[in-house]
Write a protein that binds this DNA or RNA. Structure first.
Lengths: 138, 138
DNA sequence: TTGCCACTTCAAGTCCACTTGAGGTCAAGA
DNA sequence: TCTTGACCTCAAGTGGACTTGAAGTGGCAA
């Protein structure tokens, strides 16, 4: 269990110290204690930060990510909620696949208007499956 | 080419009129003109709005989406940029698949700590591959 | 012991994506 | 003609995710 300070964590993760403090305040990461007034982190927080970045890049809010990752000890995690998140990600994946293919097709297809192209239209129809806002609790 | 007003577009797309005006101002959608002072839209703006929603749900900014969709006529779209976006999405998809599987595993695996589980760790390592911020131009 | 300075806290500021509010306008019905 | 009401404009407000700035603190080198 390697202990590192916030500057080192920032260096290893590429995440600014200000953001690390912000994440700690939000409960997304944990510091193990202080050396003087400096926070000490477990080195594997780096991985957790990568996961947080991934979640963000996939369009999840910090609160949702906190739900997915749990707050450290995994034992109390709601398994049904985890499955729900997994399904949600699965739907995102499907739409993203269609979007990726649509983009590739758009890049390759010489048709003047993609709106006329059946391939493009089919892909976009899949991609455009209505996206729920889902502000409420799951 | 069916013409509809903003209320009808809002109804069909589920996007509030205020957002439609905002999107028009940003150049994401176009109105064809006015009837009195009311905007008139082509009915197929509905599809474009689905695509915009999709892009948002995938974590793209409105500016990036504007890049991807072009401003109406597709002829001037930069194909290389489209391919880059597609590759970017592809990488996100791979990490999301690992994250989804990791979540499913976490929901099913009875181990007290997932940090100890090799399956979980492997998946999370794949998922956590560094995500570039890429604020700059591509 | 002093001084440095990277860290600390806390409040305020920024950016994005909208939403809300105040006040105005036009087409249509009474 | 007058009223109504859904639309209009423009400015300001909101919420999420950070970032910045001012003022304080403690470990370490000189």
């Amino acid at each position: 269990m390697a202990l590192i300070d916030i500057a080192e964590l920032a260096r290893r993760s590429g995440v600014p110290a200000s953001t690390l403090r912000f994440y700690e305040e939000k409960g997304l990461i944990e510091s193990l204690g202080r050396r003087g007034l400096r926070r000490t982190f477990d080195a594997d927080v780096v991985e957790r930060l990568s996961l947080i970045a991934l979640g963000r890049s996939a369009g999840f809010s910090l609160d949702e990510i906190a739900d997915m990752l749990g707050d450290g000890g995994a034992s109390h995690i709601d398994r049904a909620m985890l499955m729900n998140k997994a399904e949600e990600i699965d739907r995102t994946i499907h739409r993203l696949v269609a979007l990726r293919d649509g983009l590739r097709h758009a890049a390759a297809c010489p048709a003047p208007s993609h709106a006329q192209c059946p391939t493009f239209r089919r892909l976009m129809t899949i991609a455009a499956e209505r996206t729920r806002k889902a502000k409420g609790k799951g």
